[in-house]
């Protein structure tokens, strides 16, 4: 009995040692790949950061309103954010490559799926970023134009534009990711329609005086001249 136990234990230990000996070189290779990947990803990050600084990407980002958006979200600068994104994508890619070397059944499939998903993830993130930029830029442009034209509901107009663009960008992003495409499409259509209908009703009922004033200003040019101030800036 004792001998059987000892034999079984010895066999188990030998199996473990064989398995360990089988996987150890692969684990070492995986670690080497992960480490080399980290080094390469770091070099890539520095390279991307330098190129972005040389091409004055931050200026472009500032003038487009991205910097302000990132500041509001307590995120680093656009240059830093992009270079970090490149670093993480590259490193995670190398780690998964290393994991595939281990030869664990099932993991390889997930690894290849991840690599296939990467371009879509990147495009979705770009859409989200550009959508946020566009929403911020156009809502501010509408707010400024409305305030300078003495339009009463400037904030409402600005917020409406921001919401519409954001919903549009989000629905595009989900479509690219392939997440609940039909649901998102329907949700977008419903929300967009509801917003438009709401605005039309609000303007028609709540703002009938405003609508009249607006039309009078546009159509009755004779009256307009009488109302204008005689102030010349230059």
């Amino acid at each position: 009995m004792q001998e059987i136990i000892i034999t079984e234990l010895t066999q188990a230990l030998q199996e473990l040692a064989r398995g360990f000996a089988h996987y150890l070189p692969r684990a070492v290779v995986m670690l080497i790949i992960a480490f080399a990947g980290w080094a390469l990803a770091y070099v890539l990050k520095v390279l991307v950061r330098s190129v972005l600084r040389l091409t004055k990407f931050s200026k472009f980002s500032e003038s487009a309103g991205a910097t302000q958006l990132l500041n509001q979200a307590a995120l680093p600068s656009s240059t830093e954010l992009l270079s970090r994104f490149v670093f993480w994508v590259a490193w995670v890619g190398f780690i998964l490559l290393g994991v595939s070397v281990l030869g664990i059944v099932g993991l390889q499939e997930y690894t290849s799926r991840f690599f296939l998903f990467l371009p879509r993830l990147f495009v979705a993130l770009v859409i989200l970023f550009l959508g946020s930029l566009a929403a911020s830029f156009f809502s501010r442009a509408a707010l400024l134009a409305a305030v300078n034209a003495n339009f009463k509901s400037s904030r409402l107009l600005s917020v409406s534009i921001r919401i519409i663009i954001s919903i549009f960008a989000l629905s595009m992003m989900f479509e690219v990711l392939g997440v609940a495409e039909q649901t998102m499409l329907m949700a977008f259509g419903t929300v967009f329609g509801a917003v438009m209908l709401g605005l039309a009703i609000a303007f028609g009922i709540g703002g009938k005086d405003l609508a009249r004033e607006f039309l009078e200003k546009r159509l009755a040019t004779g009256k307009k001249e009488e109302k204008e101030d005689e102030l010349s800036p230059l």
């Binding site: 200026k59 003038s63 487009a64 309103g65 910097t67 830029f137 501010r140 442009a141 400024l144 300078n148």
Partner: peptide, 12 residues
């Protein structure tokens, strides 16, 4: 510093 779009700064 182009804190936001330069045109928006002038309009503001």
């Amino acid at each position: 510093k182009s804190i936001i779009s330069r045109d928006h700064i002038v309009q503001a």
